[in-house]
Design a protein around this nucleic acid. Structure first.
Lengths: 197, 197
DNA sequence: GCAAAAAATTAACAAAAGATAATTAACGCT
DNA sequence: AGCGTTAATTATCTTTTGTTAATTTTTTGC
């Protein structure tokens, strides 16, 4: 069962995808909706799903013993999300993945998909490119921690993902940047105010 | 030309490597020595080499306008090093890669190696595993910036790589952790001193 | 082994960040 | 639209970090 909506989705993620490739993917992938606030993958669970976000926004966070939350990643439409620990190391997820908005995903079981992808050069290449993209993203993030000041790191986030900054509460952005919400509020004020001298 | 030393090297990086795989690699890879202090890859150069470090230690760092250095990565024996920007995005390297010790590497041109690796499932699998390992490493590093305090981040480094901490000057470790050498010195003192209350 | 150079530590001060709490603003729900 | 909740900001204080410079320690080359 493949409607035009689904077809245009597959075309959007990979223009050069052949009909055969598409069919192989379709047999594995399922659409699913996650309501705002709902937990997609809970801590300590084992989940081999890889999901492509069609719309919405998901936050991955760590829960400290004292109840504090630290946001590790945000993913939104046209991005992939997965419990990387589980998929790469077969370990239970150390994080909680929760939808911040009503979210629609296409998900597939990576364990089942892997052999199919391996047998299809085009899908393999696509998978490898996605992983390389993730690597580049994390390298850039480490870079921003090493090279930039906290204020610069925030400004980079605003510059690189202006839409996201408006969609996500500042308290989540703060921990994503490695600082507290109070500190982020002060930084925002400093940036906004005409630098007094 | 393949001596027993080289053979044991190839076996060490990948036990299941067949003779044929090994031969294909050998035709591409070359051994090279880099003296302590010598720059391996300079900033703004385009280098498609991927190097396996047989012995020694290489530091990748950024040079600020004011002459300050920020260490981004350290690589030592049995690890791979490459100018990732160049290989993934075809952009000139933004960092300087310098040997901190006399270093021996096996290097190959990734552009030339890529088709051979692509045509050999075992080599492809190995390459993918290496990239996944790098991804895991960078994800863990981002995690340590988001979840840990500066002192905890330093202690994690000491715990995870005790040998490296002794081989590398603290001033390089400091910027790797996103702090100044002076601050690291204070943290070391705090950790060492019996906590006074 | 010794002198010179580099690294590490310490000191002193300013700036920034964490912690906690109070206040204000924004949001969500019916 | 209004009420209750949650988020954001502000205030206050403490702790940590950055900065610069001086001092001590370690390393390095000869």
């Amino acid at each position: 069962m493949l409607n035009t909506d689904e077809i245009s989705f597959y075309l959007s993620i990979y223009k050069e995808l052949s009909l055969k490739d598409m069919y192989e993917l379709v047999t594995l992938a399922k659409t699913r909706k996650i309501a705002a606030g709902e937990v997609y993958i809970d801590i300590d669970t084992i989940c081999h799903k890889v999901a492509f976000i069609k719309s919405g926004l998901i936050r991955g966070y760590h829960l400290k013993e004292n109840g504090e939350e630290r946001t590790l990643l945000l993913r939104w439409e046209n991005q992939f999300i997965a419990a990387a620990d589980t998929i790469v190391f077969e370990k239970p997820s150390r994080f909680i993945y929760q939808a911040l908005e009503d979210t629609v995903i296409m998900e597939l079981d990576f364990k089942k998909a892997q052999p199919i992808i391996n047998n299809n050069p085009r899908l393999s290449a696509k998978r490898n490119a996605i992983i390389l993209g993730m690597l580049a993203e994390y390298m850039e993030r480490v870079e921003s921690f090493v090279l930039l000041s906290t204020a610069e790191r925030y400004m980079k986030l605003v510059h690189d993902k202006p839409d996201i900054v408006n969609r996500v509460p500042n308290k989540y952005l703060a921990t994503l940047l490695g600082i507290t919400p109070v500190s982020l509020s002060r930084i925002r004020k400093r940036i906004a105010s005409p630098k007094k001298r």
